[in-house]
């Protein structure tokens, strides 16, 4: 059977040819890329880029950022995947409410997210006495950074994964059950491979968001080199004294997520199976 989904790929809407569509579109692209370009143009002529990158202040921030953002990615995938699957497969009263609640951490000002986390995990927060009794300190620790990042980035992953899971026909899972597959085996052999492009791009988006997290982190985790000072915090601090260091760090924060996002898109596009019926 021909793949009907591709039939329109060469279709170029009539409206799209008009200058009234092309000009605003061009302006939008320029507006979105020019500021990024501006940073590059400012940074590239600097002669001591490599030395700046080797300053302990920079390497420590890099290390902290990598450790925390990867940890929050692990948490996000471990806990977000079952949630996304449940949301994709179950429809009931309250799912719409829950769906909307899930978007809140994304639209909340990060500072508010930070205060909310303080009020939950802080000494005087909801869970404070309980955590205290167990001898667990959260605020000012690397754990706090990971929690702040997970809080703002997990919804991104869950959204994408949910859409991915919705795109997997439940009939495929039913067939797998009748062929002797358990629920878990079906999930890993059928559902995950088919939703993989969405899972991957969701994970990368979430990771990139975690990497760029600033507001909630400064509010909830504070800022200490080697412990809670991530790259965005280091950039902010560096702005107060040394613009070059700040810009070099900023460039890294642009290049690395861009590379990852681009690679994912590229990969996801190559691995789409399309529909066949």
């Amino acid at each position: 059977m021909p793949n009907h989904g591709r039939r329109h790929s060469r279709f170029w809407p009539l409206a799209g040819r008009s200058i009234f569509w092309r000009l605003p579109a061009l302006l939008a692209v320029t507006f979105l890329t020019l500021p990024l370009l501006a940073i590059f143009l400012k940074v590239l002529p600097q002669s001591h880029l490599w030395r700046t990158l080797q300053e302990p202040f920079v390497t420590q921030a890099l290390r902290t950022s990598l450790i925390t953002s990867l940890s929050s990615l692990v948490l996000t995938v471990a806990f977000g995947t079952p949630l996304a699957y449940a949301l994709a497969r179950r429809r009931g009263p309250g799912t719409t409410l829950f769906d909307t609640l899930l978007d809140l951490p994304m639209v909340l000002p990060p500072t508010v997210a930070g205060v909310a986390l303080l009020m939950t995990f802080g000494r005087r927060g909801l869970l404070g006495p309980w955590l205290d009794a167990m001898g667990i300190q959260v605020v000012f620790t690397t754990t706090a950074v990971i929690l702040a990042q997970s809080f703002v980035s997990m919804p991104l992953y869950v959204r994408s994964a949910q859409a991915g899971f919705r795109g997997v026909d439940p009939e495929l899972e039913r067939v797998a059950y009748t062929l002797g597959y358990s629920g878990a085996r079906t999930f890993f052999r059928v559902t995950v491979p088919l939703a993989f492009p969405a899972l991957l791009s969701g994970a990368v988006m979430a990771w990139a968001r975690a990497l760029g997290e600033f507001g909630a982190t400064i509010m909830f985790a504070g800022n200490l080199t080697g412990r809670t000072q991530t790259m965005p915090l280091a950039i902010y601090i560096a702005m107060e004294s040394d613009l070059t260091t700040a810009l070099v760090l900023a460039t890294l924060l642009i290049i690395v997520p861009f590379g990852c996002l681009f690679a994912t898109r590229f990969f996801a596009r190559r691995r789409s199976y399309g529909t066949y019926a």
């Binding site: 985790a221 200490l224 080199t225 000072q229």
Partner: peptide, 11 residues
């Protein structure tokens, strides 16, 4: 004893 070097006095 330092647990955080804040970015501003408000923090």
């Amino acid at each position: 004893n330092l647990v955080s070097e804040e970015t501003s006095v408000k923090q």
